[in-house]
Amino acid sequence: MDVFAKYVSGIDNPDHRLKAEEILSWTAGQFPNLEAQIKWNKPTFTDHGTYIIMFAAAKNHLSILPEKETMEHFADDIAQAGYSASSRLFRIRWTDPVHYDLLKKIIEFNIKEKAENPGFWR
């Protein structure tokens, strides 16, 4: 995950840094066909040049940004997982467990839904 090394090293709290590394490494391992890159100074995964998911570290949480349409589709699942959310992202508090099954479903949904998408955004 060399592409994210500088970003992750900028997370001050070592426990937060470790959790961010774990989530990013898990994502790269589960979806090796996605391209890992930094976009807007944040770790991002794309597929054939189209946006799939972005991560952003904050003081109290890691934000997951899968796009508005995906947030709408998974709103109930995200709420059931106990994550707070807005219209475009949800937050995994540094002290919360990561629901990797939900994260996997979200990423798989975006890959499938955007398979024929010619642009970066929907």
Rank of each mutant, 00 (worst) to 15 (best):
R88K: 14
L89T: 00
L89M: 05
D77Y: 02
A115K: 08
A79N: 10
T44S: 02
A5V: 06
E116Q: 15
K112C: 15
S25A: 15
V8N: 00
M71I: 07
Y51M: 11
A20M: 10
H16G: 03
P43K: 04
L62D: 00
N60K: 11
R88W: 13
D96N: 02
G119E: 13
N33R: 14
A57G: 12
A20V: 06
I107L: 06
W26L: 09
A115T: 06
P97E: 15
R17A: 05
R122G: 13
K105S: 05
K105P: 00
F55Q: 04
D47Q: 15
N13M: 03
R88C: 13
A75L: 13
T95I: 13
T27E: 02
K59V: 08
A115H: 04
G82Y: 03
G10E: 12
A75C: 12
I92C: 07
T46Q: 09
A115P: 02
P14F: 01
H73D: 11
Y100M: 00
S63P: 09
I38A: 06
F4G: 01
N60G: 12
H73T: 14
K104T: 15
D2K: 14
T27D: 03
H61K: 06
I92F: 07
F109A: 03
P43I: 04
S84I: 10
I106V: 13
T95Q: 13
P32C: 06
A85I: 03
G29I: 11
E113V: 10
E113K: 13
L18K: 14
T95A: 13
K112E: 15
E67P: 07
A36G: 01
R88F: 12
H99D: 14
G10W: 06
I64H: 00
R91Q: 14
T44E: 00
I64E: 00
F31D: 01
Y51P: 05
H99Q: 14
L103V: 09
A57K: 07
A20H: 02
E22P: 07
M54H: 11
D12V: 15
T70N: 01
G29F: 08
F4K: 01
E113F: 10
P14G: 03
V8M: 03
K19E: 07
K42T: 13
K68I: 13
P66G: 00
P43Q: 06
A85T: 05
Q30A: 09
A79D: 11
A56H: 08
E35T: 10
P118N: 12
E72T: 11
L102T: 08
L102K: 10
I78C: 02
D47V: 15
H61Q: 07
I107S: 02
E116I: 13
W121P: 03
S87M: 07
Y51S: 09
H16D: 06
G49R: 04
G119K: 14
T46M: 10
N41W: 11
M54D: 05
R91G: 06
W94N: 08
F55Y: 12
I53P: 02
K112Y: 14
P14E: 04
